Simulated assay, not measured.
Amino acid sequence: MIRDVSHADAAALAAIYNHYIENTVATFEEDALTEAAFVQRIDAVLDAGFPWLVLEEGGELLGYAYAARFKERVAYRYSVESTVYLKPGVTGGGRGTALYEALFARLQPLGIHAVIGGITLPNPASVALHEKLGMEQVAHFPEVGFKQGKWLDVGYWQLNFEST
């Protein structure tokens, strides 16, 4: 079941994200987030009028996806950056696709034109997910992040919705 996020989800979602902070280079954050900090992030997304969705199966939260402002300048108001994370061990089963499809369906009626996803490279699974949904690579920045003792590349994938 994919549904809107609630504050009650914050601890479980922070646990998912903190795994990626502490064990991977998928995010460039280095300090784990508290439940309270995660609630603040949820509120920032919702207060901006964007969707934050969670995937729940059998009462367990397995992942989330949300959209946030791509940049603050007013001319970017029809562009968002998308994010998706799944609980370790549940990737590869179509859950990320389902979350992104639901997110995209919620963004289009908001008048969003461009969805942009950033990926730490290399990450073949994330690249495959974004490209499966029609996103195309539009940028590659070599060695722009430093985490776990190494320089990391970042790529950006973009999908433009049809104008109505």
Rank of each mutant, 00 (worst) to 15 (best):
G134C: 12
F104T: 00
A102K: 13
M135H: 14
K132I: 04
E131V: 10
L133N: 03
Q108V: 10
I112F: 04
V115C: 14
R106N: 11
A114M: 04
A114V: 05
G134W: 12
A139D: 08
R106Y: 01
P124F: 00
I116P: 03
E131Q: 14
P109A: 04
M135R: 12
V138C: 08
H140D: 01
Q108K: 15
A128K: 11
L133F: 08
P122F: 14
K132L: 06
A114P: 04
L103D: 02
H140C: 01
R106C: 11
V115T: 13
L107A: 07
L110F: 09
I112W: 01
G111E: 13
I116F: 00
L110A: 11
Q137S: 07
Q108M: 06
M135W: 11
V115S: 11
A125S: 11
G117T: 11
G111F: 13
P124H: 08
A125T: 09
G118R: 02
E136Q: 15
I119P: 00
T120R: 04
L133Q: 14
I112C: 10
R106E: 13
L103H: 04
Q137A: 08
H130V: 10
T120I: 06
Q137R: 15
H130W: 10
G134T: 13
L110N: 02
G111V: 14
L121W: 09
H113R: 15
V138W: 04
K132Y: 07
H130A: 02
V115H: 07
L103M: 02
A139M: 00
G118H: 06
M135T: 13
G117V: 13
E131W: 06
